[in-house]
Design a protein around this nucleic acid. Structure first.
Lengths: 131, 131
DNA sequence: CCTTGACTTAGAGCACACTCTAAGATGTAA
DNA sequence: TTACATCTTAGAGTGTGCTCTAAGTCAAGG
């Protein structure tokens, strides 16, 4: 019984990840994705594992991690388990960074909410005066 | 008794806001800041109100608002109180956007934390095996 | 008076992260 | 076989938000 290793075209991966084929090739070129196997022809043949990795990359990107740092992380990942400590360090730094950003966003959110309330009151009062 | 209207040079405003003089002129050029009064000479002469506005702009920027939207907001602000409803709309849209981003960051933070824990365990186990 | 340094403008240049183009090879349907 | 779509590569172009340069003006200190 073969392990079901689904083979995917670049189009299918694009659909599965929300990236364009351009971006998928770009990510491979700059080392965010390992060199994808080709079929007997020259075309890329992705695995479901590749899709998993790409989706994880997208999570990292969504945290605001830079391409440079993602390149470093991807390189470490390819080097295997002995790089786990350094990857954990990167993730811890990322966590702190994200926590700080969430904190800042919450502060600014308060200011925005304050302004909304303030301006809403002024608008109400102005309408009352006019009526 | 004069109202104490402090006059500030571009350098002083740069220090007060953390922006460079380049960026201050750039913001004025693109309309984020109203045309700053000049003294008898041609040099910019900021008021404390201007600094207040710039610091508010920086809060908007920190929420991820685009220059384009900040330009629109600044334009509305200069037009006076009859634009308050539209400004409130912009702020409400911003609030939703920021809330969504905080939510996404929190989700990705969970994933990052999960990976940190997982990898930390693997590292521990590996060390035990070797000892 | 002369040097030094901060100011002015318009516009060029940069870093980031894509995004697209050109030109050619290959696979698929009629 | 003939279209036609899709793939490939290297490399050029784009949008955002600054960031810096060049060339000139102006004011104060020695």
């Amino acid at each position: 019984m073969d392990i079901q290793k689904e083979k995917l075209t670049i189009q299918e991966v694009a659909k599965a990840t929300g990236l364009t084929t351009h971006t998928l090739r770009y990510y491979e070129r700059i080392g965010l994705i390992h060199p994808i196997n080709r079929e007997e022809n020259t075309r890329r043949c992705y695995t479901t594992d590749d899709v998993g990795w790409i989706n994880f990359l997208l999570k990292l990107r969504a945290t605001g991690m830079s391409i440079k740092d993602m390149q470093r992380y991807a390189e470490l990942q390819r080097q295997g388990d002995e790089t786990l400590p350094e990857r954990v360090q990167m993730l811890k730094a990322l966590r702190e960074n994200v926590e700080a950003r969430i904190h800042e966003l919450n502060e600014n959110l308060s200011l925005v909410s304050y302004k909304i309330d303030l301006y809403s009151k002024i608008i109400e009062e102005t309408m009352l005066e006019k009526s």
